[in-house]
């Protein structure tokens, strides 16, 4: 790929998704775009970029964006956020929302569904405490293809073994040929929607807990700030935000502050 084509493609990706690519990601770009080219019956990445330059076909640009923004995910990734959710955050929400008996969670980069489904299983494990409660989990992603996989709730043997405790596997999955299917009781808890983090999240509703993990790392400072400010506006005043291990609000957004003792968990500064 020529430097000119790389720059052209990077510009499109940043404009559409916020994704920032440095030249050391040239290999990643090429490896992700080759299958897109093949699917279009185009022989090479050079020809694919030429096609985009010539026609500016929105459908093809969406395919290129989706190919670049689809990232690996696994169940109970990093483990500790889910422990914090179950042991610290959820009990507080149950206490604070005791009169309404409802809460909402947003997984802002749901990818193939493992994160929202991990939360769904974590909640189901606490079912005794949640009798009469209404809880919604919304999972959003910029890729239609990955959302289709997430909605299906079907995973390979390899996928269910990375992070999934076996006790939960036997409780919440069914095996169908070589695939593992999440039971309807888990799938029905998560509502998947298309959403681009660069847009205004207002229409998604109001949330008590937001997971936005391992996505800000792909954005530049300005885009990180914009995304975080957008999230802060749709969170309840006492809501909490979970970020990935390599992410922080420091120097990016004044809307959030770290919650002491809870790694990667942030509250709103407007809550005092």
């Amino acid at each position: 790929m020529s430097p000119d084509d790389f720059e052209f493609t990077s510009e499109i990706l940043k404009e559409r998704s916020g994704l920032v690519l440095t030249t050391n990601k040239m290999y990643l770009l090429e490896s992700r775009l080759l299958p897109v080219a093949r699917n279009q019956g185009i022989d090479s990445i050079d020809d694919l970029v030429a096609e985009i330059r010539r026609k500016k076909d929105p459908a093809l640009i969406v395919k290129v964006t989706e190919a670049m923004t689809t990232n690996e995910s696994f169940f109970f990734r990093d483990n500790h956020p889910f422990e914090t959710f179950t042991n610290e955050v959820l009990p507080k929400i149950l206490e604070k929302r005791a009169s309404q008996k409802s809460f909402k969670i947003w997984c802002a980069a749901a990818s193939s569904g493992q994160e929202p489904y991990s939360l769904a299983m974590s909640i189901l494990e606490q079912e005794r405490k949640l009798s009469g409660w209404r809880y919604d989990i919304v999972g959003t992603d910029i890729s239609h293809d990955i959302l289709a996989k997430a909605k299906a709730g079907t995973y390979s043997q390899f996928e269910v073994q990375r992070g999934m405790p076996t006790t939960l596997l036997v409780k919440y999955f069914e095996k169908n040929a070589e695939q593992w299917e999440l039971k309807p009781e888990v799938r029905k808890l998560v509502n998947f929607k298309y959403f681009n983090l660069l847009e205004n999240p207002g229409p998604l509703g109001r949330f008590d807990i937001v997971f936005c993990r391992n996505v800000l790392i792909y954005f530049d400072q300005q885009t990180k700030g914009k995304v975080l400010d957008g999230i802060s506006k749709i969170m309840s005043d006492d809501g909490v935000l979970f970020l990935g291990g390599a992410e922080t609000v420091l120097g990016v957004s004044d809307a959030f502050k770290a919650i002491p003792g809870q790694r990667g968990v942030y509250g709103l500064t407007r809550n005092g």
């Binding site: 405790p165 076996t166 036997v170 095996k175």
Partner: peptide, 22 residues
């Protein structure tokens, strides 16, 4: 790698279960 074997292993005192290939 079938559900019956996995359930039997856990019920018999195994702590975790890995399905080959790993």
């Amino acid at each position: 790698n079938d559900m019956e074997h996995i359930q039997r292993a856990i019920e018999s005192g195994a702590n975790e279960y890995i399905m080959k290939p790993f």
